[in-house]
């Protein structure tokens, strides 16, 4: 009887999924993608503790991770280093896979912290922060590790799989999140790419500026970031105006040709 009922449902095109929803669709994500471990995992606890406490002192090194483990009273420190680095491929130019994970985790964790409490689907446009404030918020997050920024950036740009698989995609995700979670107007044409590229370049040049900045609380870096973003956005306006003018000229030309041909 039940089977017959199911058959009728199938034939009538009604999917049984309506009555048996997949429970995992309603589970809140417990991972900071692309990291593979959950927020309650030892890896997450160690790395977040390292970013907040030990990296400021020891920089991006195995020492910072080990000190974080000691502070958290985690034994098997050497094993845990292998566990932390497991998702990275070893590279001749990098010190160790666990340090690569620390670099990646710093990028991912701070990106998620930047957008904490923001939801464009439920919030009004005017409630969302501006693109500039998100950029500055992200840069301010790196102030405690300011003296290690130079070493951090130089490790990120080492040519190899880590650059292609982790560093560059993470930069793209950051620029994407800055635009998506701010009140900035988004586009659905080629400007979608150029805007993200512009924001990425503003962020990277600000970070490079920050690596050499000696001003109090990196005030000059923040000013530099504001100016840079403004220039990028102005460039975007120039691009839009040029694009609009090009379309105008093209359509005008087509109409002119049409009218000439109809006269002939």
């Amino acid at each position: 009887m039940i089977n017959r009922g199911r058959l009728i449902f199938r034939k009538s095109g009604v999917n049984a999924r309506f009555f048996h929803p997949a429970t995992d669709e309603y589970v809140l994500p417990n991972k900071l993608s692309p990291c593979t471990y959950t927020k309650d995992s030892p890896q997450f606890k160690i790395l977040s503790h390292a970013i907040d406490n030990t990296v400021t002192k020891f920089g991006f090194s195995e020492r910072a991770i080990i000190e974080a483990m000691k502070e958290l009273k985690i034994e098997n420190q050497s094993t845990m280093l292998s566990a932390i680095g497991s998702s990275n491929s070893p590279s001749f130019l990098h010190s160790s896979p666990s340090v690569m994970e620390l670099l990646k985790f710093n990028l991912v964790l701070k990106r998620y912290r930047m957008i904490e409490g923001l939801d464009p689907l439920t919030m009004q446009q005017e409630e969302l922060p501006s693109l500039e404030s998100l950029l500055l918020k992200r840069l301010e997050m790196d102030i405690p590790i300011g003296k290690h920024i130079s070493a951090f950036m130089s490790q990120l740009v080492i040519p190899g799989p880590f650059l292609l698989d982790s560093a560059l995609p993470e930069l793209h995700r950051l620029a994407d999140d800055m635009i998506y979670f701010s009140n900035e107007k988004d586009h659905h044409d080629f400007a979608w790419y150029s805007k993200r590229l512009g924001v990425s370049s503003a962020y990277i040049s600000s970070k490079l500026f920050m690596a050499q900045d000696n001003s109090c609380n990196y005030k000059e870096t923040l000013q530099f970031a504001k100016d840079k973003l403004e220039k990028v956005m102005r460039l975007g306006d120039y691009y839009n105006n040029t694009e609009e003018y090009a379309w105008y000229v093209l359509l005008n030309s087509v109409n002119m040709v049409k009218s000439r041909m109809s006269r002939a």
């Binding site: 080990i66 034994e75 420190q77 050497s78 292998s82 680095g85």
Partner: peptide, 17 residues
């Protein structure tokens, strides 16, 4: 070789056990 380097195991100088 890749397997061994990826695992990157060994007692660190500043580790205890």
């Amino acid at each position: 070789d890749h397997f061994i380097n990826k695992l990157d195991a060994g007692k660190r100088p500043n580790s205890d056990t």
